[in-house]
Nucleic acid binder design. Structure first.
Length: 289
DNA sequence: GGGTGATGAGAGCACGGAGA
DNA sequence: TCTCCGTGCTCTCATCACCC
């Protein structure tokens, strides 16, 4: 019951239509706990080198938030009546009201965010070790236990690791489905708000796995390069020298492109113009909708 | 920015005590 | 109340050249 409540509270629009049962529900409920720890986590996202979890800025903001909380507690404890106290702003339950105003000022709740990434096989192993209280010492930090669990994990054979890998694969499949549902049901303005706030934190945007955005047509040369890719003769070993291989690939395609009869190149250009018009029309339709 | 592909970098997943 | 610590695995992204 509790796990069901947690599920519904944490991510109603993700799980409402298909509430999992049994062990799967347990796994998902555990997964939801991660939302508490991480902010704006998605599978499609990785951060640039200067991640805010490591940056001094992040630490600074954390400290600020903590002190602000403490200050708030103190103020609440004083009996002095506030002469100019404004009535507490009641948050609207209407999601459309919540999403009004500047994107960056929209207060994002945990349940607004996409489902968090699923646990890997190794992390399932860690969880199990804690559940069984094996290789786990109480009274010491998780970091110390992690080292011991990692050593134990390394000792496992492939056969022993297989159940964890299978379970991780199942969780991943469920995660992908949940994520697709999330993007399908999420308000576009909510996604824009999430991305605006991610951008402010120097994080990458989240992208829909559904590929809902209309694809921009390929320019004439790119389309041509794509068609002749398999016929290009590049002598450089792409494994040994990836960059050299790519450079040679581009040059070879460019030479063939220039050697094409003008009318042939024009055919590719005309095709691009036609597709470009279709693309622009589609974009215009979506904007007006 | 769109595709081609290999590769390295790095995020994020669980866990709970400690400390700010 | 929130982040950090440490671990291994998995996955995404940027990079490189080419042209429009």
């Amino acid at each position: 019951m509790l796990s069901r409540l947690v599920l519904q509270r944490v991510s109603p629009h993700v799980f409402a239509c298909n509430v999992p049962t049994g062990g799967l529900r347990m796994a998902l409920a555990t997964r939801q706990q991660a939302v508490v720890r991480t902010f704006l986590t998605t599978a499609h996202v990785s951060e640039p080198v200067a991640s805010d979890s490591e940056s001094p800025k992040a630490k600074k903001s954390t400290t600020k938030r903590s002190s602000a909380t403490k200050t708030g507690t103190k103020k609440a404890a004083t009996k002095k009546p506030k002469a100019k106290a404004k009535p507490k702003k009641v948050e609207s339950d209407d999601p459309e009201d919540r999403l009004k105003g500047p994107l960056k000022s929209i207060k994002l709740k945990k349940e607004d965010l996409p489902p968090p990434k699923p646990a890997t096989s190794f992390f399932l192993f860690i969880r199990e070790q804690y559940e069984r209280k094996e290789n786990v010492r109480t009274g010491v930090g998780a970091a110390s236990n992690s080292s011991e669990i990692a050593a134990r994990w390394k000792e496992l054979s492939d056969t022993e690791k297989q159940p964890y890998r299978e379970k991780a694969a199942a969780l991943k499949a469920e995660y992908e489905a949940a994520r697709a549902r999330w993007f399908e049901n999420a308000d576009p303005r909510l996604i824009r708000a999430i991305n605006a706030q991610r951008k402010a934190k120097n994080r990458l945007k989240i992208h829909s796995p559904l590929g809902s955005d209309p694809r921009r047509p390929l320019p004439a040369f790119i389309q041509y390069m794509r068609e002749i890719h398999d016929t290009l003769d590049v002598s450089i070993d792409r494994h040994a020298n990836t960059q050299g291989y790519l450079a040679a690939l581009g040059k070879a395609a460019s030479e063939k492109w220039k050697a094409l009869p003008e009318e042939e190149r024009q055919r590719y250009r005309d095709e691009y113009v036609t597709k470009q018009k279709e693309y622009e029309e589609l974009r215009a339709q979506e904007k007006s909708a």
